[in-house]
Amino acid sequence: MSDANIPCEQNFMLTQEDFDRFARLSGDHNPIHVDPEFSARTSFGRTVSHGMLLFSVVRSLLAQTWPGSTLNRQSLMFPSPAYAGDTLALVVEQQKAEGDRLVLKTTITRPDGETCLTGECELTVPEKEAS
Protein backbone atom coordinates (compact mmCIF):
# COMPACT_ATOMS: atom_id res chain seq x y z
CA MET A 1 0.00 0.00 0.00
CA SER A 2 2.91 2.36 0.70
CA ASP A 3 3.68 2.43 -3.03
CA ALA A 4 0.11 3.38 -3.96
CA ASN A 5 -0.19 6.68 -5.77
CA ILE A 6 -3.36 8.23 -4.33
CA PRO A 7 -4.12 11.58 -5.97
CA CYS A 8 -7.35 12.05 -4.00
CA GLU A 9 -9.61 10.48 -1.41
CA GLN A 10 -12.75 11.49 0.44
CA ASN A 11 -14.95 10.26 3.27
CA PHE A 12 -18.66 10.89 2.82
CA MET A 13 -22.07 9.91 4.13
CA LEU A 14 -25.32 9.50 2.21
CA THR A 15 -28.81 10.02 3.64
CA GLN A 16 -32.25 8.68 2.71
CA GLU A 17 -32.92 12.18 1.35
CA ASP A 18 -29.95 11.71 -1.05
CA PHE A 19 -31.43 8.35 -2.21
CA ASP A 20 -34.80 10.08 -2.75
CA ARG A 21 -33.20 12.90 -4.74
CA PHE A 22 -31.27 10.51 -6.96
CA ALA A 23 -34.46 8.49 -7.50
CA ARG A 24 -36.20 11.64 -8.76
CA LEU A 25 -33.23 12.56 -10.98
CA SER A 26 -32.75 9.09 -12.47
CA GLY A 27 -36.38 7.96 -12.57
CA ASP A 28 -35.32 4.82 -10.68
CA HIS A 29 -37.87 4.61 -7.85
CA ASN A 30 -37.17 0.97 -7.05
CA PRO A 31 -38.45 0.42 -3.48
CA ILE A 32 -35.10 -1.06 -2.39
CA HIS A 33 -33.76 2.52 -2.61
CA VAL A 34 -36.72 4.61 -1.44
CA ASP A 35 -39.11 2.51 0.67
CA PRO A 36 -37.76 1.75 4.17
CA GLU A 37 -40.74 -0.48 5.11
CA PHE A 38 -40.41 -2.60 1.97
CA SER A 39 -36.62 -2.77 2.34
CA ALA A 40 -36.90 -3.96 5.96
CA ARG A 41 -38.54 -7.14 4.63
CA THR A 42 -35.73 -7.86 2.11
CA SER A 43 -32.40 -9.59 2.73
CA PHE A 44 -30.74 -6.16 2.85
CA GLY A 45 -32.83 -5.15 5.88
CA ARG A 46 -32.91 -1.46 4.91
CA THR A 47 -32.73 0.81 1.91
CA VAL A 48 -29.53 0.75 -0.16
CA SER A 49 -27.91 3.42 -2.33
CA HIS A 50 -28.36 3.44 -6.10
CA GLY A 51 -25.05 2.25 -7.57
CA MET A 52 -25.05 5.28 -9.83
CA LEU A 53 -25.34 7.62 -6.83
CA LEU A 54 -22.03 6.14 -5.66
CA PHE A 55 -20.65 6.69 -9.18
CA SER A 56 -21.88 10.31 -8.90
CA VAL A 57 -19.72 10.86 -5.81
CA VAL A 58 -16.74 9.37 -7.66
CA ARG A 59 -17.36 11.53 -10.74
CA SER A 60 -17.67 14.65 -8.58
CA LEU A 61 -14.31 14.03 -6.89
CA LEU A 62 -12.65 13.40 -10.28
CA ALA A 63 -14.06 16.71 -11.58
CA GLN A 64 -12.79 18.56 -8.51
CA THR A 65 -9.34 16.98 -8.72
CA TRP A 66 -8.91 17.31 -12.50
CA PRO A 67 -11.06 20.27 -13.60
CA GLY A 68 -11.84 20.29 -17.30
CA SER A 69 -10.98 16.61 -17.75
CA THR A 70 -13.00 14.25 -19.95
CA LEU A 71 -14.18 10.82 -18.80
CA ASN A 72 -13.53 8.43 -21.68
CA ARG A 73 -14.55 5.16 -20.11
CA GLN A 74 -15.63 3.79 -16.78
CA SER A 75 -16.11 0.28 -15.43
CA LEU A 76 -18.01 -0.31 -12.20
CA MET A 77 -18.67 -3.25 -9.92
CA PHE A 78 -21.00 -3.19 -6.91
CA PRO A 79 -19.98 -6.12 -4.66
CA SER A 80 -21.83 -5.00 -1.48
CA PRO A 81 -24.67 -2.57 -0.78
CA ALA A 82 -24.08 0.91 0.70
CA TYR A 83 -26.47 2.08 3.43
CA ALA A 84 -27.60 5.54 4.52
CA GLY A 85 -25.79 6.93 7.55
CA ASP A 86 -22.56 4.95 7.09
CA THR A 87 -19.27 6.80 6.65
CA LEU A 88 -18.00 5.61 3.28
CA ALA A 89 -14.38 5.94 2.15
CA LEU A 90 -13.63 6.76 -1.49
CA VAL A 91 -10.05 6.24 -2.63
CA VAL A 92 -8.73 7.07 -6.12
CA GLU A 93 -5.45 5.41 -7.09
CA GLN A 94 -3.47 6.24 -10.19
CA GLN A 95 -2.73 3.11 -12.22
CA LYS A 96 -1.13 4.64 -15.29
CA ALA A 97 -0.34 8.03 -16.85
CA GLU A 98 0.40 8.26 -20.58
CA GLY A 99 0.57 11.70 -22.15
CA ASP A 100 -2.72 13.43 -21.34
CA ARG A 101 -4.43 10.15 -20.30
CA LEU A 102 -4.80 8.91 -16.76
CA VAL A 103 -6.01 5.46 -15.75
CA LEU A 104 -7.44 5.44 -12.24
CA LYS A 105 -8.78 2.80 -9.87
CA THR A 106 -11.70 3.91 -7.73
CA THR A 107 -12.87 2.12 -4.58
CA ILE A 108 -15.62 2.87 -2.06
CA THR A 109 -15.41 0.95 1.22
CA ARG A 110 -17.91 0.62 4.10
CA PRO A 111 -17.03 0.92 7.80
CA ASP A 112 -17.03 -2.90 8.09
CA GLY A 113 -14.41 -3.15 5.31
CA GLU A 114 -16.79 -4.45 2.61
CA THR A 115 -16.41 -2.91 -0.85
CA CYS A 116 -19.47 -1.05 -2.21
CA LEU A 117 -17.93 0.09 -5.49
CA THR A 118 -14.79 -0.75 -7.36
CA GLY A 119 -14.01 0.55 -10.78
CA GLU A 120 -11.49 1.71 -13.30
CA CYS A 121 -11.69 4.78 -15.46
CA GLU A 122 -9.73 6.65 -18.08
CA LEU A 123 -9.59 10.45 -18.06
CA THR A 124 -8.17 12.85 -20.61
CA VAL A 125 -6.82 15.83 -18.70
CA PRO A 126 -6.13 19.27 -20.20
CA GLU A 127 -2.50 19.59 -21.38
CA LYS A 128 -1.39 21.93 -18.62
CA GLU A 129 -2.78 19.53 -16.01
CA ALA A 130 -0.99 16.48 -17.40
CA SER A 131 2.09 15.41 -15.50
Binding site: F22, L25, S26, G27, D28, H50, G51, M52, L53, F55, S56, R59, L71, Q74, L76
Partner: peptide, 9 residues
Amino acid sequence: EPLIAGLFS
Protein backbone atom coordinates in the same frame (compact mmCIF):
# COMPACT_ATOMS: atom_id res chain seq x y z
CA GLU B 1 -22.09 10.65 -17.07
CA PRO B 2 -23.71 9.21 -13.90
CA LEU B 3 -27.09 10.49 -15.12
CA ILE B 4 -26.56 8.63 -18.40
CA ALA B 5 -25.56 5.55 -16.38
CA GLY B 6 -28.69 6.06 -14.26
CA LEU B 7 -30.84 5.54 -17.37
CA PHE B 8 -29.38 2.03 -17.73
CA SER B 9 -29.83 1.24 -14.05
